[in-house]
Amino acid sequence: MSEIRFTDQHEWVRVENGVGTVGITKYAADSLGDVVYVELPSAGKKLNPGGEAAVVESVKAASEVYSPVAGEVIEANQVIADEPAQVNADPEGEGWFFRLRVSDMGALSKLMTNDQYKEFLKGL
């Protein structure tokens, strides 16, 4: 059973068999507006928790995407590189950014659960 976790920078990570899929939350995608460009990490890149992993841009804003957990990038989502609109259409599904092999599974428990993230959004 996969589990989805959230950061206070509005990234999400879903881990299955030690592989984490990372994207930005619906809240983040809505606040950015129409995404026009993403810059994705290449496979093999080692990421630290909170480290800069990707860039997402709308017409009027640009924002870094930080890796929620430590790990090594396995693949980036070519679909959103070609069709950035996918990030808005399905941010927490087909609009994922990259997958990484998670090196510190324990760190996941420090991230927010779905319910906690919902609470967190209410406070913004």
Partner: peptide
Amino acid sequence: STREQHIRREK
């Protein structure tokens, strides 16, 4: 224009 200073500032 996201490359530019008025959006990216120090980046």
